Simulated assay, not measured.
Amino acid sequence: MADMRQQAIDAGAEEKALRDLEYARDRERLGDQAYTRGDFEGAARNFRDAKTGFVGALETAKRADVAVANNSGSNDNGYGNNGGSDEVPGLDDISIPDIGLGDSGSADLSSGLPGLFKGVAEYDSSKGSLRLNWSDGSELFKDMKRMSGDPSHAIFEGDEGVGSGQDGNYVMAGNTKGFWLVNSSFEDGVRIRAKVQFQLLINKPDFEIVLMADEGGDFYAVSYGANARVYSDGLKTSTVVSPVKMYRKSPKDWVQKREAYDIEILYVKRNEDEKGILEAKINGETTVKLTTDKYRKGFPGIRWKDTKFIIQELEISGLVDEEWAEKEINKAPQDSSEGSEDDFDF
């Protein structure tokens, strides 16, 4: 009976340690996001909470260790520890989430993940985050996959079909109709920054930045950086229109041709108890914001019709879908490429 009671205590301690670790990881993510937004007070508060969670998890594990050691000593009948192992009870048995503590999964991602991309890929194992950007369209083309549309309607290099005077200063251009995804899956957090110049809008134009897309028809999208949508099986199931009056009009009424727009789209789910937040900005101004957690992992991309555009700059960062990453690394040929070790914040 005493042994059963001790086992129950040990199991409870391990469960509490796991909860503390999960809490700490959530606080760490919140701190990173607050720091990125410039909310330094919020960042400091969440980092302090994360530290408290990590310390609490370790202390719980240590208490379990001491309890088991004492229990073993009082029942060994003078014959030592009955052949028990040298593992630390409560700590070595915990399946620790990826928080950058050097577990083998993180090591594999650090060495293998950047090599999956032709563009610049920076993986931060301490956050489980990946940042991607491309110096030219030839790199981006190799990191994307076409979902629909004629291949000729997406342009990644040269002036043909783009317009004179570009001098190759773009990573992607498009016309008529198309749908392309960046081949990198994110989970519970992704930010897309794009500098886009629109050249022509005809008929019923649309230009969507896509997030959390599966390879079917489920995804979030933000049209021209202003109005948010949710798609299921390729069909639009809901729309949240921007509260900003100008963006509620047809894009043909407000989009300025030949003017570059800085568009930023963010989706983040901070913890299990709250829904995720989808937010869009144009030139730093929030255009739409909503809460949803219908889709929590997937690919980012671009989808358009009846619009001619040029993406001059593109950067994507977020929390890596580790299941996807490990699968891709395992099937990819070995590559000697290594990612940058520069600090970065999702």
Rank of each mutant, 00 (worst) to 15 (best):
S152I: 15
L266N: 14
K294E: 05
R248K: 09
Y224Q: 14
F179K: 05
T287G: 11
D10M: 15
E14I: 14
D214L: 07
N81I: 09
R63C: 00
S110C: 10
S238P: 01
D335V: 02
K16N: 03
L235M: 06
L266C: 15
K51S: 03
M144L: 11
R48Q: 00
K204W: 02
A107E: 10
V88G: 00
F344D: 03
M1G: 14
P205D: 04
I265H: 00
D49S: 15
D206C: 08
E264T: 14
A67M: 05
Q199H: 08
R131E: 09
G119R: 05
T286L: 06
D214W: 08
A67G: 07
N271S: 13
D143V: 02
Q199L: 15
K252C: 08
S125P: 05
L113I: 11
S126D: 05
S337C: 12
E272W: 07
D26N: 10
D167S: 12
N227W: 15
F141T: 00
A34E: 13
G234Q: 02
S238G: 03
K118A: 04
G73W: 03
G38S: 01
R258N: 11
N77W: 10
E274K: 13
G112C: 15
D93H: 12
N133M: 10
V288S: 01
I94R: 02
S85D: 12
D20T: 09
P205H: 04
N183S: 15
P243Y: 01
Y79W: 07
N82D: 14
V288T: 06
D136I: 11
Q6H: 06
S185H: 05
L30N: 03
W180E: 11
R37D: 06
K118C: 00
T36L: 11
V320N: 07
D273L: 01
G163D: 03
D262Y: 11
L113K: 06
A34W: 02
A2R: 06
A44H: 08
E122T: 13
S185W: 05
A121Y: 01
V162H: 00
R63E: 03
N227E: 13
I192Q: 11
L140E: 09
N175A: 10
G158D: 02
K245N: 13
V320Y: 10
A67R: 08
